[in-house]
Amino acid sequence: MTTLAAPQRTEEAAGPSHRASRPRGGRAGGHQHGGRLAYAILIVAALVSAFPFYWTIVAATRSNAELAKTPPTLLPGGNLMHNFQQVLEQADIGKALLNSLIVSGAVTVGTVLFSTLAGFAFAKLQFKGRNALLALTIGTMMIPPQLGVIPLFMVVAKLHWVNQLQAVILPGLVSAFGVFFMRQYLVQTLPDELIEAGRVDGASTRRIFWSIVVPIARPGMAVLGMLTFMASWNDFFWPIIALSSQEPTVQVALRQLGGGYVHDQSVIMAGTLLGTLPVLLVFGLLGRHIVGGIMHGAVKG
């Protein structure tokens, strides 16, 4: 259910795009130096991108009454701990973070594994119905999974899975995009000769998969993994239907907080801060690689 919205955006930029005809990595930057105006615009854009985060911090450290003042306060205050306490009382953010980690982790690992398996088969193996199945996969890639939630809910209700994490994990594993992405990746990076060489050595397909395909596919798997993880972490529509405040993911908890009892803006912002912090942390550590991954995914795919 999860992965479509975001990673979808990467793929076909790739498909039809031109393979780089200039040597890769030869030049770090663009063709010209940026002028002052370029810097000015970029700085403004960066500020606009970052300001809501700053505002979240300001609001999270204030009280509701302070937020209702004119002129508005633009500096952090000293109410953070109190607000955090309120958050923890109203929504189980701790459990939500753990649940989100479990769900996104399982979805990521599963998606990457299954996509690599299928992607390999579509890229390098011959079998009946291959083209038809691949066409089916690509054809449904563009369809938002949101459109299937009604039967999905009926099934999940029948299985009594409402409010259980597998209700979110299993549908999340379906990623037509992932299969397509890995197929494209392997078509381009995995030479047929390597597989042939493996066969000549008498290796089974399974051996070939684990000792030849996976090592080569790893960079692609890493990109797919990052995209899948973020999309799953941020998934909203299905989790708010299938889960509840008793067993929330971060997004469900945030929604709960947004509509929770003491409707206090500063508390909501404190919760938003708590829920976003882990992603920001990951971004701080891996930001460069994520940027690289997205751009890479865009060109390669």
Binding site: A6, A45, A46, S49, A50, P52, F53, W55, T56, A59, M230, W233, N234, F236, V250, Q251, L254, R255, L257, G258, I268, M269, T272, G275, T276, V279, L280, V282, F283, G287, R288, I290, V291, I294
Partner: peptide, 17 residues
């Protein structure tokens, strides 16, 4: 990285802000 930051934010968090 800064310009990609919003992408990492969830719909829920962004909308509440």
């Amino acid at each position: 990285v800064t310009m990609l930051l919003p992408y990492a934010t969830s719909v829920a968090a962004a909308t509440l802000v």
